[in-house]
């Protein structure tokens, strides 16, 4: 630590890798970054899908992005996963690589061009997972420092039992890393999954205030949650679109 402080002092506060605010950089109207976060089975993807349909219906330019979807490191992570060779640090760095590729290639340019980028998981997934796996939380946050902050982050909070139940119905076969088996939490994969997910949830809850999460009660009706999300998004839309959209919301 002393070493780092000493070096950083000498380097000074250089920011050529700034968190650029698109609005400020050029005259182009910037888009908005909307993020959903939450553990598996919190219903966040369903909500994002509905939001996507609504925005497209309103004529808004939309781009959808997820977590771990780029081709670049997919091969390596799956190879590493098979052999269980990944350490928490390499796992974290590979996901960061993957994220950076999506970010540099799609997310950031599309935001600059005025798109509404809808992200199913964003840097907070890495904050939560990597911390639970044993990486230094401060190191993880610095690594993702280049990523622009979302316009809105919806966090879907749900009791662990409900989430696990939802997952178990649809997809009973769990993968090694997905269940957090690398953490030796339990020899039983389902029990391991449950403990792992509850630890991730703890991390989400801990960062909710600092990261300005809009906390959603994910036990509510799907329609009710969606209405709340749409209302929250209204201020981000162009005035004429917002007027149209709010009329529809009232009906």
């Amino acid at each position: 630590m002393e070493e780092l402080n000493r070096i950083n002092e000498k380097i000074g506060d250089e920011t050529n890798l700034v968190r650029v605010n698109p609005q400020e950089k050029t005259g182009y109207p910037a888009g908005a970054l909307i993020v959903v976060e939450g553990i598996d089975g919190s219903g966040k993807s369903t909500q994002l899908h509905l939001l996507d349909a609504w925005l497209r219906h309103l004529g808004v330019l939309v781009y959808d992005t997820g977590w771990n979807s780029s081709e670049l490191v997919k091969e390596i992570t799956s190879k590493g996963k098979r052999k269980a060779l990944l350490t928490p640090t390499t796992f974290s760095l590979l996901h960061a690589t993957d994220f950076a590729d999506r970010y540099e290639r799609n997310v950031y340019p599309l935001l600059r061009a005025g798109y509404f980028v809808l992200a199913d998981r964003y840097i907070y997934t890495a904050y939560a997972r990597d911390t639970v796996r044993g990486c230094n939380p401060r190191w993880v946050r610095k690594m993702y420092d280049f990523a622009i902050r979302p316009s809105l982050t919806f966090y879907f909070d749900v009791p662990i039992d409900i989430a696990v139940k939802r997952i178990m119905i649809g997809r009973p076969k769990l993968k090694y890393y997905e269940a957090g088996m690398d953490l030796n939490l339990s020899t039983d994969i389902y029990e391991s999954y449950r403990i792992f997910q509850s630890r991730i949830m703890e991390q989400y809850r801990r960062m909710a205030r600092k990261e300005n999460f809009l906390v959603m009660d994910a036990t509510l009706d799907i329609e009710e949650q969606q209405k709340k999300m749409r209302r929250a998004i209204l201020p981000l839309l162009r005035p004429e679109v917002a007027a149209l959209a709010s009329e529809e919301l009232v009906q």
Partner: peptide
Amino acid sequence: VGQKTLALFYAADFADRLE
């Protein structure tokens, strides 16, 4: 491939060798 992507990729490679 973007510069940050490449930098992180090399860091991952290095971390693997380190550990």
